[in-house]
Design a protein around this nucleic acid. Structure first.
Lengths: 245, 245, 245, 245
DNA sequence: TATGAATGAGATTTCATTCAT
DNA sequence: GATGAATGAAATCTCATTCAT
């Protein structure tokens, strides 16, 4: 048992040191010698575990993504509505990047544009999230949640591209502490995008934008006539609440 | 003069060869020797013009951005409305990337995540566009074009991030020919984002989403009472039209 | 006993695997790791039996030569004539090389030119055959079988060198199957060499090469004079026979 | 011109140092670093001239063989008789090996058993000599110089194998000074082999081996009868001479 | 200005070998 | 006795860069 722990920690120690160093420098600028010193494991041993410097590089997202995938796939089946699933996907994505900044720096600044990485299992796992997102959007279009004329690929690109951009900027500016974290920005951002593609609930009906004075006049009128139908009552109340937010 | 031309073409030939090779391989994998062969200029001469391999790297976007900036700055002052200016900025940005794929590959896949590049004049020029965008958004918020609660930084990130993401994907997939180019996607994309932040003209009022039956009931009621105000009349008509689209 | 067998087979398995691999690659290119896999014995255990990679290398011909020497030394005392003993020595040599091609490849292509191997017991055993050959030749010279002016060292070099050359070529050409094996070539070869150094039975006399016409004239002359001595009569008859062959 | 000399000497200096070191150690044990020091040329420059350590290795016999080939091919056409041509081929071969002991050590102890070397131009040049020899033997068989039943391949193997063996032994014993050099041994050796395959000049006639007493008797008889034909007179005299040698 | 030639400075990688269990 | 795990010690090779002409 102690043996197992020791063995495990050896490999893990290498990967942790490598992640730190690859992220802070560059894959090319990082040296195995440095990783060896940082991890306290000899260079030869690093090559015992990872045949190549590049193998070591790719092993890192492989592990992190695999670990992360479990949690993510655990939660997802419980969420039935499309928007909720999209939010879940993006949240797990953003949370991982935010909680493990070395990892997000490595992936976003180096691996994403590495052609060999794109043929990796690790990248396949990352693509899984992107695919899930695309599926959600398509499902939403199919089931009437989203507008028929929405471009699923564009929407997905907006969602992923924006998040990646936010993280890349954050990294390139030295990861400053901010009032709003990127996680905090997720819901407003998602709301903005979704609001642009949601079918209005009354697509078949009519949308009225009223000045306050007109609205008041209308309300009074309706009240006077006591003819407000049930469905309309709810609508008016609901809107009032959401307006306050 | 002939001498000057020759000199200039020598330098340009180096930069053209370097752009191609840097973009197709990687800055690190590209060798001065290869650039020398490709450009027909000896290695030593390359060092005559560019003190360092990295200097050569940075000189490329420096030149391209500077050239591009002129056109862009020429047009911009003539566009007064905020959305038009935003569109102009993004369009020049997308057009450059699309027309010079080596350049966009180099910038998006390699330079954007290069810390030293971010201290370069070339990057400053790129930032200029991003700043211009941010200014537009802020101006739009200030002058009521956009909602007061819009997050200018987020909006800018959406705009830039999405475009970058689209280009990065395009490059990573081997730049496939597509029906819709990224330039083609710009307007729908921009409309989607802007629609999400435009002030509804009656932001102070109330929005009602009515089922057709309720709308009809309401309409009848109002007609009966003959109290429909002018402003409300227009709204009802306008909405009907836009609904048909 | 079972233990002994097991132990023995372990060591033998290592040596067998090593022989194959050393012969097919090179001592330098072969790795202990490969021998470990091929033999099914762990690397550390190989070092338990053989202190050094080179020790393992030298242990192989040591064992094979020792095994082979027994048979050879068994037969030799029973052959009394010099030429027969020489043939026996060369045959055992050639048969070993031919029957164990990995071994002959290893010895001829790698070990023969290895200076440290030349200080080995295994090489001493190989030298034994060479010495035996030299002794035979010297004995043959001394006892009149071979010409006094024969250069024993040269003769030995011819015998050994030719055989080695034939095997080396055979190996370097990928050991093609041939009509004549090298064993088959041994007797013609040996006859050719021996015929060159055998004392003519009349070494003290005179050799005449006669044209047929001259021979006939001589024969007639002798017959006319009836003075042909007995010894000459036999010679003439014997030669006639052998000429017909 | 001075420039040319300098350039040439650089490359040559590398090859000379490499030959010495490769021959004294082993290709594998020799290091570029050592060759660099010995030749006074930086390691990087060695790689400038020879792309690989192995390229350097093979370049050495390439050059030496090419140089040697010229002389050899110059002389050969002037020798018309088969045996003379064979002697010329072997002599040039032996002289080269003897005069350049580093080279013969390298070729015989290391390169001959190197499979990649056997695909080299240098080895092709070496094969040329071997081929020439085989051609001579075949020609000799065809034109009646050699016996019809001679095995050309075996003869060639005897010639080459013996010489190689003599040199290998000489090298493995530390190249001792000897009374007889290998060049000195060539003629007796060649005579021994050729005598074994020469057609007796009077193959059509008769060979008599006479005891001295019989020969004397015969001589007296012939003299008495005064019928010795001219051709027989020469034969007797010639034999007497050659017997004295 | 242009360049051929030379090199300094490392980094990756490979194994033979050791040692604790 | 057997072995899994760890590593010390080098050597090849690659380029960016310099310099003399």
């Amino acid at each position: 048992m102690a043996d197992h722990v020791k063995t495990k920690s050896r490999k893990d120690r290498i990967m942790e040191a490598a992640l730190r160093i690859f992220a802070e420098k560059t894959f090319q600028d990082a040296t195995i010698s440095e990783i060896s010193k940082e991890s306290g494991v000899s260079e030869a041993t690093i090559y015992e575990y990872f045949g190549t410097k590049e193998d070591l590089l790719f092993a890192i997202p492989e592990k992190i993504t695999t670990d992360n995938l479990k949690d993510y796939q655990l939660v997802l089946p419980f969420i039935k509505d499309v928007e909720g699933r999209m939010r879940a996907i993006l949240l797990s994505y953003v949370q991982l990047y935010q909680s493990n900044s070395h990892y997000s720096a490595l992936v976003l600044l180096q691996l994403m544009s590495n052609k060999r990485f794109r043929q990796t299992d690790a990248h396949a796992a990352i693509r899984l999230a992107a695919h899930g997102l695309l599926d959600c959007i398509r499902e939403g279009i199919a089931n009437g949640t989203f507008r028929k004329d929405a471009d699923a690929y564009l929407i997905r690109s907006i969602l992923m591209g924006t998040i990646e951009h936010l993280f890349i900027h954050w990294h390139m500016q030295g990861m400053p502490k901010r009032e709003k974290t990127i996680v905090d920005m997720l819901d407003p951002f998602l709301e903005l995008v979704l609001s642009g593609i949601r079918t209005k609930r009354d697509e078949q009906g009519l949308t009225l934008n009223l000045k306050l004075e007109d609205a008041n006049a209308l309300a009074q009128l309706l009240r006077l006539n006591e003819i407000l139908p049930e469905s309309l009552k709810q609508k008016v109340n609901g809107r009032k609440k959401s307006n306050k937010q």
